[in-house]
Amino acid sequence: MSGISKTFRVVQRGQGLRGAAGALFHREYREIRALRNVSFDVPDGALVGMIGPNGAGKSTCVKVMAGILVPSSGTCEIMGYVPWRDRARYVGHLGVVFGQRTQLWWDVPVRDSFELLRDIYRVPEDRHRRKRERYTDLLDLGDLLDRPLRQLSLGQRMRCELAASLLHEPKILFLDEPTIGLDAVSKQAVRTFIREINRDDGVTVILTTHDTADLEALADRILLLGHGQLLYDGTLEGLRARYDTDRTLTVRFTGNAGDVTPPGCTLISSGEGMLVYRIASDTVPLAIAQLAGALSLTDVRVEEKPVDEVIATLYRDLRIQ
């Protein structure tokens, strides 16, 4: 997909009673550029994570790739199809899970919803059964299948959703915040499952998320969107190397400290037998060597910032929030 742009026109409304009355007679429009010249390429069987603050263009991007939104300009080719032009033939190869809405039926047993999906996607019965059994195994759906969706917990529901989106053996799976609102165990189950179908079945997975733990656990590659622009495309480690060079260095020692601050270090705090520095990642070895010479160290700890914090700093620095 390359050079995708998308512009929306929205009505601008005034505020309060006067503004509302004004809107009766004339209105102004404002253009929103949801995507600006976004280009990337995803190889078969990849597992790509998309991040970005709310309104960055993630869902617009997914919609374009899923063929339900026609971009203002640019081209996109997936499996030889242009998604929005060949929608009817193309969407059969897609599985989509939106974390906030369901494709299953609220009041009927999950098994019946699965059967309906089988009929919709024209999957032969024996293949359907094979797939269903496999996912029942992997996701531990056993006794959930005969209960209506409304009786299931959020985590159970998401597991059923995942199975439902894969029953027709899609080549590509779009996941929109698949772990939102789930408890730790369910999150773990969902992540493990995504890993497995990606590795064993070769399904290409593109997921959007706000949960950075998802990215750490899953994504081989990260796309960072902000203000409709693609700001970063690479691995999580690469992202860290580029945007997060600060480390926290904590040393413990016996005896007297004196005034030791190796070059490139900033002392953040000190305590009884303990010193904490902020330090750039490339000077860490040098600093440790100097400290080891000056003090009798008992313990050295170098910490990276949690990914969450890296991303938050990143959003702030790039002014995309």
Binding site: A66, V91, F98, Q103, I120, Y121
Partner: peptide, 13 residues
């Protein structure tokens, strides 16, 4: 409004 239409459009029917 609920986005259900998107889900329907994603099916080959």
């Amino acid at each position: 409004r609920t986005g259900g239409l998107d889900t329907l459009l994603l099916r080959p029917r």
